[in-house]
Design a binder for these strands. Structure first.
Lengths: 211, 211
DNA sequence: GACAAATGTCAATATGAATGTAAATGTTTT
DNA sequence: AAAACATTTACATTCATATTGACATTTGTC
């Protein structure tokens, strides 16, 4: 069990939790100082005490990032939730994030999926079966306009059709390779393909596991 | 919730919205620079900041198309977050929540994974590869002491070894079938097997997708 | 297709404001 | 007396902003 907090430390910790919940980011020392009606150095000292007692963790020197810890030493839930849009249809010309294209949003664990502006895409078909990606899975993607060899990417073919495949760059063409012997690898000219993102995770719900 | 904008970034975003509304297309860097009375590179930097914070999205490299993004909209997240324990080792006695067996916790979307007392289990090995379950995946499980045919279950063999396999009940034995030709299906007496749960989902992080 | 103009990108650099750190010191609480 | 709490001041670092100039790419026009 952790050391107990003094009344003042508890007050500051509560304030911090509140602020982080609202703004997703910890307030600056001076902002906190103003709201708590004390000096910024006093806040710094209390933060230090909280860190020593294992209630928060701060990163690096001069860094403004601060995490609130669980009693197990884990990140507090408030900082782990990440809401990402589930994109229904990927298009080039049209705004990909326009609300019309949304199929809702998905809540994921920020501890597992780092990165910003992630989006999710519902997989159609079984062309990536052997990579463990099945029909109806949700692919968690990180926006990217480029790709490295062997990465699994979200690509837009002919500015129209969106697909998830493994990416290979050859001297004079791009190969999008499925992971399923029933499908053929396809080759494209450079101007036929637009990379939209890299797949960094998979979420499969109960429906994907039905018999 | 997106990160807050600075006053300058807000000003540029407002200007952008205005321009796009009027001309249906975003202004060039130098046009914007002229109207905002700063250099074109400064505009580019602010655009980049806006993109990082998730307020706009720009397509491709050297493309002039830019989209204003909607907010993900934060309603009812509170009810959707579900924190479930990641079990390190499954034991028979069923004090599954005993502290020593913890490997942390996982935040999932309650909308996708309904049910109570769910737990997660880290998959070891590739015996279920053809069912789209890979090594190091996190299997989301619902506690259960029974199973139906063809369901993928968490079973305890000889009160010791925990395994994830497809379940088949035969007249005088239980079959636990892997989904990988490299592994053999196994048969057990009824008293050798204890069903501990049913797999209702899969969560795979970036590590599970590395090359 | 060729060429020039317009446009986006990148790197290096600079500056002021905001911010975190540290030290010295005093006050209150326990 | 010791710990917690607080202040003031000086300093170091980071961030947002901005500039300039060279360069790559796209677009429009002939």
């Amino acid at each position: 069990m952790r050391l107990q907090l003094t009344r003042n430390q508890q007050k500051v910790l509560d304030y911090l939790k509140q602020e982080i919940k609202e703004n997703k980011i910890s307030p600056s020392l001076r902002t906190a100082a103003a709201e708590l009606a004390i000096s910024h150095a006093a806040v710094a000292q209390t933060f230090k005490a909280l860190e020593d007692k294992g209630y928060i963790r701060r990163e690096g020197r001069y860094s403004r990032t601060l995490h609130i810890l669980d009693d197990v030493g884990d990140l507090h839930i408030a900082q782990r939730q990440k809401q990402i849009p589930v994109i229904g249809r990927i298009t080039a010309g049209l705004p990909m994030y326009a609300r019309q294209e949304w199929e809702g949003s998905l809540l994921v664990d920020a501890k597992i999926y780092p990165g910003q502006n992630l989006f999710a895409l519902k997989i159609q078909g079984n062309s990536m079966k052997n990579a463990g990606i099945l029909d109806q899975d949700l692919a968690i993607c990180e926006p990217r306009q480029y790709a490295h060899n062997k990465e699994i990417v979200v690509a837009l073919i002919h500015h129209e059709e969106a697909t998830v495949k493994r990416f290979f760059l050859h001297p004079d063409f791009i190969e999008l390779r499925p992971e399923n012997p029933d499908f053929r690898s396809q080759q494209y000219e450079f101007d036929e393909i637009l990379i939209q993102g890299k797949v960094i995770g998979i979420v499969r719900g109960p429906k994907g596991l039905e018999i």
